[in-house]
Design a protein around this nucleic acid. Structure first.
Length: 472
RNA sequence: GCUCCUUUCGUCUAGAGGCCUAGGACAUAGCCCUCUCAAGGCUGUAACACGGGUUCGAAUCCCGUAAGGAGCGCCA
């Protein structure tokens, strides 16, 4: 039997990391088992679904490279099929029309709550054959009243529900549109889904779905209810607690593989291993190793992992991402070679590609804006004097590369009994505008002789804005 | 309220009865390295929710309690 999993997000809110983690587990499991992964958009709630949310789902999955073998399917395009199944259920007496009004149901619930009972539909239309004029009936599933349903969950083990706890749920609204719990059942059945991997907030829905599957004569899939992801403060993930669109992580300069690596470790582990390539995740992932408890999102570890992935990646593989980040700063980066060199020079000092772009602006454009505080500290009397002399030596250099620059700097420092820092910092501030950069010799090499000398001149002239053209 | 789920350092986790004086990672503190910032190395602080059992032995099994979460919609 070939494994078929699916990710079925609802476009009523933005796809966030909680959803992405579920998608990842489903995707990994399918890939690991050589199975099929389906993407299905659950948009039956036409009131609340938005095109923008659908776009984020599609765009997010593409960015993360969680490729689907089938889909995206849209439930709103399958209404005829749902109607067909509902009619069949009606015909077989496995579903019935209920003419209760919303007010009536609200009252029923209120009464039950007042009596401290579990609020549930009491089945008052279960055996009626008449109708009530003026009310568009909903269709309810006739749930068994006795016995129990055992969910043999892959992460929680056997979970038992008594049918007496379940009521007859609505499968079609008054306007005829089908509801979520029903569509899921029909879709999973029709699409041959063998493994349902979803958030454990769905565990309570599972017995109802299994009963409907049984009524339709379909085989129940294997279920795996994975724990939820909480916000950094341990509260439920919501807009106030870091539930931002997955695409925001792209904008902030995270690598897809790093985000996935972070997410896979939330609720899953493989011994003490922290860093996984996409390929390793596929090879090692197993539902049997998934935890039961919810976990809190920790942005600092994500940051660390992102840097680890940047440091391990092939520089060429990061070029396009860096180019995009630079572009959003208004910098048109030239050739890939320079970008690859920047990546190698910067990746151990920044945690995201956005930071990298921000910290690499001095590699572009002619002049550079100098941080006033840095200038105060390193370009005054002493520093200026050093720079002045250094300029001459650098200008006289025959070959312009890191080794040569380094030679000049250390000889210069030794000759004057100075620490290298006393020489490097003024130069660094002059050519980069700040006190922070990759090793000075490499930095100077990459900036080039022309710009290095002109920036020194500008710094000595005290006009840090001499040729500034780097956008803020 | 009822039903279901969960509970190891601040956070993510290892742990499937003796290997646990509870391991790793992020964060944090100190030290080393060092031209800046980092990266890297070393060291430290820090946890089995609580109470009962079962057992020669329990973080691991069972039962309670507590705390947190989910569901109980003509939402998904």
């Amino acid at each position: 039997m070939t494994v078929v999993t699916r990710f079925a997000p609802s476009p009523t809110g933005m796809l966030h990391i909680g959803g992405v983690r579920t998608a990842l587990f489903s995707w990994l499991y399918a890939r690991r088992m050589g199975g099929k992964f389906i993407l299905r958009v659950e948009d039956t709630d036409r009131e609340r679904s938005t095109d923008e949310a659908v776009r984020v789902i599609l765009e997010g999955m593409r960015w993360l490279e969680l490729d689907a073998d089938e889909g995206p399917y849209y439930q709103t395009q399958r209404f005829p099929r749902y109607k067909e199944v509902i009619d069949r259920l009606l015909l077989e007496g496995k579903a019935y029309r209920c003419y209760c009004t919303k007010e009536e149901l609200d009252q029923l619930r209120a009464e039950q709550m007042a009596r401290k009972e579990k609020p549930r539909y009491d089945g008052r239309w279960r055996d009626r054959t008449d109708s009530r004029p003026g009310v568009d009936p909903v269709i309810r599933f006739r749930n068994p009243t006795e016995g129990e349903v055992v969910v043999d969950d892959q992460v929680h083990g056997k979970v038992v529900f008594r049918n007496s706890e379940l009521d007859d749920l609505v499968i079609a609204r008054g306007d005829g549109t089908p509801t979520y719990n029903f569509c899921v059942v029909v879709d999973d059945m029709d699409m041959g889904v063998t493994h349902v991997i979803r958030g454990d907030d769905h565990l309570n829905n599972t017995p109802r779905q299994m009963n409907m599957l049984a009524a339709l004569g379909a085989k129940t899939p294997s279920y795996a209810h994975v724990p939820m992801i909480l916000g950094a403060d341990g509260a439920k993930l919501s807009k106030r607690h870091g539930a931002v669109s997955v695409l925001q992580y792209e904008e902030e300069g995270y690598l897809p593989d790093a985000l996935l690596n972070y997410l896979v470790r939330l609720g899953w582990s493989h011994g003490d291993q922290e860093i996984f390539t996409r390929q390793q995740m596929i090879e090692l992932f197993d539902i049997a190793d998934v935890n039961k408890a919810a976990s809190a999102f920790n942005g600092e570890k994500l940051l660390w992992l992102n840097q680890q992935h940047m440091m391990r990646a092939e520089p060429a593989a990061l070029v396009a991402y860096l180019r995009k980040q630079l572009a959003s700063l208004g910098i048109e980066a030239g050739d890939d070679g320079l970008l690859a060199r920047i990546i190698v020079a910067q990746r151990e000092r920044v945690k995201t590609l956005k930071e990298m772009a921000l910290a690499s602006q001095y590699f572009f454009g002619e002049g550079v804006g100098i941080d006033p505080k840095a200038a105060d500290k390193h370009l005054r009397a002493e520093g200026a004097a050093v720079l002045q002399e250094l300029r001459g030596e650098l200008a006289a250099l025959e070959t312009w590369d890191a080794a040569a620059v380094h030679g000049v700097l250390s000889a210069f420092a030794t000759a004057r009994g100075l620490g290298l820092g006393k020489v490097a910092q003024p130069l660094r501030v002059a050519v980069t505008g700040s006190t922070i950069s990759p090793p000075i010799d490499l930095t100077v090499e990459m900036i080039g002789r022309g710009r290095t000398l002109s920036r020194i001149d500008a710094a000595l002239a005290g006009s840090s804005s001499a040729a500034v053209d780097t956008p803020a």
